[in-house]
Simulated assay, not measured.
Amino acid sequence: MSMRHLCREYVSVMAAIADFSTNASDFGGNAFTAGETSSCHAMTGLPSSTVDVEARVAFIDRRPLVRECLSRALINATGWNVSTYGSAGAWLSVSDNVPVSLVVLCIGSRDCTQETDEDICLLDRLAERAPVAIMGDQESPTQIVAALDRSVRGYVPTSLPLHVAIEAMRLVRAGGIYVPASSLIEAQKTNVESASEKPKASSIFTQRQLAVIEALRKGKANKIIAYELSMRESTVKVHVRNIMKKLKARNRTEVAYLASAILDGIK
């Protein structure tokens, strides 16, 4: 499951808390503060250097169980002041009274390119109030680029371990940009594969047509082309017509331009 790492870390934290249940704070509400979780750090054995009580975070997820689990895991691992909301609109409606230094929008398997998703459509407005990090199940380059295009400063896959996800959020909160290295590697691999699949020039044009194209690129007239290639002028005209059909060009100038663009890219 895509949430396995985060949930595993959450279960470990909550198991430690259970051993000290008499000292634990009340987690019954939707908003959790650093004050409520300060004792949890002592119970879980987290070093004091990991506690960042100054951070105020808005955590948004439409799924109540996931929202509660992940927000509590963040609190226990960092000491952040985390407030939870069921939608981006819910936080925006109170954002003037609840300023934050980071917004985390957990979208699950939803697509950042969806124009009908209310939370996705409000990303730009969220980003006007605070740095935004998306937490999602998808790791495709297309998904991540779509998020960045909407002013998001970080894309945190749910496949990451909790401590890595937290460092990514800290980077975004500090003004940086985070994208998973795996997506960059995948994008590079896709580009290499696409390049290897491009057709060879010889599969588009015959050798004689390639010779005519080279002459057209140099601005030579049909008579000169016929003389240099030892063919009839009428034959040159036939080749030019066929080349124009393949390139969907309307004249010799377009042939020279389109052919240059194609040949320079696939030779």
Score class of each variant (00 low, 15 high):
Thr78Asn: 07
His41Glu: 01
Glu197Phe: 04
Pro99Glu: 07
Thr116Val: 11
Gly79Thr: 11
Val236Met: 11
Ser260Pro: 00
Gly29Gln: 07
Lys220Asp: 10
Leu122Met: 14
Met135Asn: 00
Glu9Lys: 14
Arg217Asn: 07
Arg129His: 09
Ala201Val: 14
Ala133Lys: 14
Glu228Tyr: 05
Phe20Pro: 00
Ile225Val: 15
Val156Trp: 07
Asn222Cys: 06
Cys40Asp: 13
Leu46Val: 08
Val145Asp: 10
Met3Phe: 07
Arg232Trp: 00
Ser39Gly: 15
Gly108His: 08
Val152Ser: 06
Gly35Met: 01
Thr190Ile: 14
Asp26Ala: 03
Val100Pro: 03
Glu228Phe: 02
Leu229Cys: 10
Cys112Arg: 05
Ser12Gln: 15
Tyr85Phe: 15
Val212Ile: 15
Val13Trp: 03
Ser203Asn: 08
Ala201Pro: 02
Leu105Cys: 13
Met135Gln: 04
Gly35Tyr: 11
Glu115Lys: 15
Gln188Phe: 05
Glu9Asn: 13
Val98Leu: 02
Phe27Val: 10
Ser95Trp: 01
Ile243Cys: 04
Ser194Ile: 02
Phe20Leu: 03
Leu122Lys: 15
Tyr155Arg: 05
Arg8Trp: 10
Glu128Trp: 00
Cys7Gly: 03
Cys69Trp: 07
Pro161Val: 06
Arg250Glu: 06
Cys69Glu: 11
Asp264Lys: 12
Ile243Lys: 09
Arg232Pro: 01
His5Met: 06
Ile107Lys: 07
Gly176His: 05
Met3Ala: 06
Cys112Pro: 04
Val53Leu: 01
Val53Ser: 11
Pro180Gly: 12
Ile224His: 13
Pro47Asp: 07
Arg67Asn: 11
Ala195Ser: 09
Gly108Thr: 12
Arg150Ala: 02
Met14Arg: 14
Val104Arg: 06
Thr158Glu: 06
Ala215Glu: 13
Lys200Ser: 08
Ala259Gln: 03
Glu139Ala: 07
Ser25Phe: 04
Glu233Asp: 14
Gln138Asn: 10
Gly29Ala: 10
Ser151Gln: 10
Ala165Thr: 15
Cys121Gln: 15
Ser2Gln: 12
Gly175Pro: 01
Leu6Val: 15
Ile262Tyr: 14
Asp137Glu: 10
Ala127Met: 05
Ser183Pro: 04
Lys200Asp: 09
Val100Phe: 03
Gly136Lys: 03
Ser21Phe: 04
Cys121His: 13
Glu233Ala: 10
Ala195Leu: 07
Lys198Ser: 03
Met135Tyr: 01
Gly175Val: 07
Ser49Ala: 08
Ile17Trp: 08
Gln143Ile: 02
